Computed example of a mutant assay.
Amino acid sequence: MTTLAELNQCDEDAFVASLGSVFEHSPWVARAVAGQRPFASAQALHDAMLGVIRAQPAQQLAEFLSVHPELAGSQARAGTMTADSISEQGALALDNLGNAENGRWDALNTAYRRKFGFPFILCVRRHTRASALRRFEARLHNEPAAEMRAAVDEIALVSRLRLAARIADHGMPQLHGQLTIQVLDGTRDRPAAEMHVELAEVGPDGRRSLLRSTTTGHDGGTREPLLGGQPLRIGQYELCFHVGDYFRGRGEAGAPVLDVVPVAFTLQEAERHYHVPLEVSPSAYRAKVVAAD
């Protein structure tokens, strides 16, 4: 990693060496803005780089889009993508799908390239695999000009995250989202400490993939966000609060009526803070999902 001051002061070749991979196989973008230094902020630097891309004539822009790898394509399976793309696609295991899933992605990639002439581009760090597929299928219906704009918009999201990963003091806002909880014990009117909580991603087939298993602290929340430090993946989730064990552990008379309280929800904005407050007693609960600013 480097600092913005170092990027502003280094020679052009060093600048390009540091930032040339922010845009896939396109170090010319970094070289094009090197002469505009010094940049007042990392955001100003990113804006300048995007300005260079958006100013390209349609043919050159299509060529720029064409150097990007397909999602779950042959390059992903062969491991021949750039290190950034391997990391991004690998997080969704798009390089290791079963035969049926490979066939579905291959069919979409073929149809998309036939219609638009360049690969489907998506900031996969903001998506679950299910939401990525839904977005892929939806964008196949776009007109070519609209889809080219959509592809550049996704590249803007990808490159902003890549740039932030390269600049230690980037200071760019709204890069990440987070999910937090707070549980209130309604029988005592105080935070419910030491309640077991699980967070799972729910696939389109209803299958749950456990993401976090933790216990609430003295304030009824968790020490760290259940999700955070990166964009939230757009998709369906379920929180399970083990309220029966909690009340039994506190010597409540009789068996609690409630055992596990599930809260199912969809995260739709990757850079938002979502908060789930739960008020619970042995026989009743009240929960909601709040999208905070």
Rank of each mutant, 00 (worst) to 15 (best):
M1R: 09
M1N: 08
T2C: 03
T2E: 01
E6V: 10
C10M: 12
E12F: 09
L19S: 03
G20A: 12
V22R: 00
S26T: 13
W28D: 05
A32S: 14
A32G: 08
V33I: 10
G35I: 09
G35C: 08
R37E: 08
A40N: 06
A42K: 01
Q43H: 05
Q43M: 12
L45R: 02
H46T: 05
I53C: 03
A55T: 07
Q56C: 12
A58K: 15
A58N: 07
Q59D: 10
Q60V: 13
Q60E: 15
Q60R: 15
F64Y: 15
L65S: 00
L71W: 00
A72V: 15
Q75W: 07
R77T: 10
A78K: 11
M81T: 13
M81C: 13
S85H: 08
S87F: 12
S87V: 13
S87A: 11
S87L: 14
Q89R: 05
G90L: 12
G90Q: 04
A91F: 14
A91N: 07
A93L: 14
L97N: 06
L97H: 01
A100I: 15
A100Q: 12
R104F: 08
W105A: 06
D106N: 12
A107W: 06
A107E: 09
Y112C: 07
Y112A: 00
R114P: 04
G117M: 07
F120H: 00
V124G: 01
R126I: 04
R126G: 05
H127L: 07
R129K: 10
A130F: 00
S131L: 02
A132Q: 11
R134N: 07
R135I: 11
F136V: 08
A138L: 15
A138V: 09
A138S: 14
H141V: 13
E143R: 13
A145V: 15
M148A: 15
A150W: 12
V152Y: 02
E154A: 10
A164N: 00
A164R: 03
A165H: 09
A165Q: 11
A165D: 13
H170N: 10
G171I: 03
M172S: 01
M172H: 03
P173F: 01
Q174E: 11
L175D: 01
G177W: 00
Q178V: 04
L179K: 01
I181S: 03
L184H: 08
G186R: 10
T187F: 06
R190M: 11
R190V: 14
R190Q: 15
H196I: 04
H196C: 04
L199W: 01
A200R: 11
V202L: 10
P204Y: 02
P204V: 14
D205Q: 14
R208T: 05
L210R: 15
S213I: 07
T215R: 08
L227E: 09
Q230V: 05
Y237M: 08
E238G: 01
E238H: 07
F241W: 04
D245R: 07
F247R: 04
R248E: 13
G249E: 08
G254P: 06
P256C: 09
V257N: 08
L258W: 05
V260S: 07
V261S: 05
P262Q: 04
F265K: 03
T266A: 12
E269R: 06
A270F: 02
R272L: 00
Y274F: 11
V276I: 15
L278I: 14
L278W: 04
S281T: 15
S283I: 09
A284W: 14
R286W: 11
K288A: 12
V289E: 00
V290E: 15
D293V: 12
